[in-house]
């Protein structure tokens, strides 16, 4: 999709999305991923030829409706199993490093 409004993916773009996605890339990875992701977007340039004016976007194959079930309490009784699977817990809560540190 190399129309004026969608320029080819750059190394800086990939560094930006890696940061958004909470991933660290080495310089070599950045080079490799930039080429590979650009290839996929280049292939997707075939969509440019389509006239999509007035076509509704589809988020799900079938019409979505709110699905409500009866509000019946259920005791799943898995608290210990869930906590046991966590990397670090304290007082039955998930423990994490300080949240208010400097941004990465």
């Amino acid at each position: 999709m190399n129309s004026p409004e969608t320029p080819r993916l750059t190394r800086d773009d990939v560094a930006h999305v890696a940061n958004l996605a909470r991933l660290t890339l080495t310089d070599d990875e950045l080079d490799a991923f930039t080429g590979q992701l650009a290839d996929v977007l280049d292939h997707a340039a075939d969509l440019e030829a389509l006239d999509l004016d007035g076509v509704a976007p589809m988020a799900n194959p079938f019409p979505l409706v709110n699905v409500l079930r009866t509000d019946t309490p259920v005791d799943h009784d898995v608290r210990d199993e869930v906590l046991a699977a966590a990397p670090s817990i304290e007082d039955e809560q998930f423990r994490v490093p300080p949240v208010l540190g400097e941004a990465p």
Binding site: R22, V96, P98, P104
Partner: peptide
């Protein structure tokens, strides 16, 4: 592990 939660996520 890392010093902050965000660094740990990454």
């Amino acid at each position: 592990d890392a010093d902050t939660a965000a660094a740990m996520n990454t």
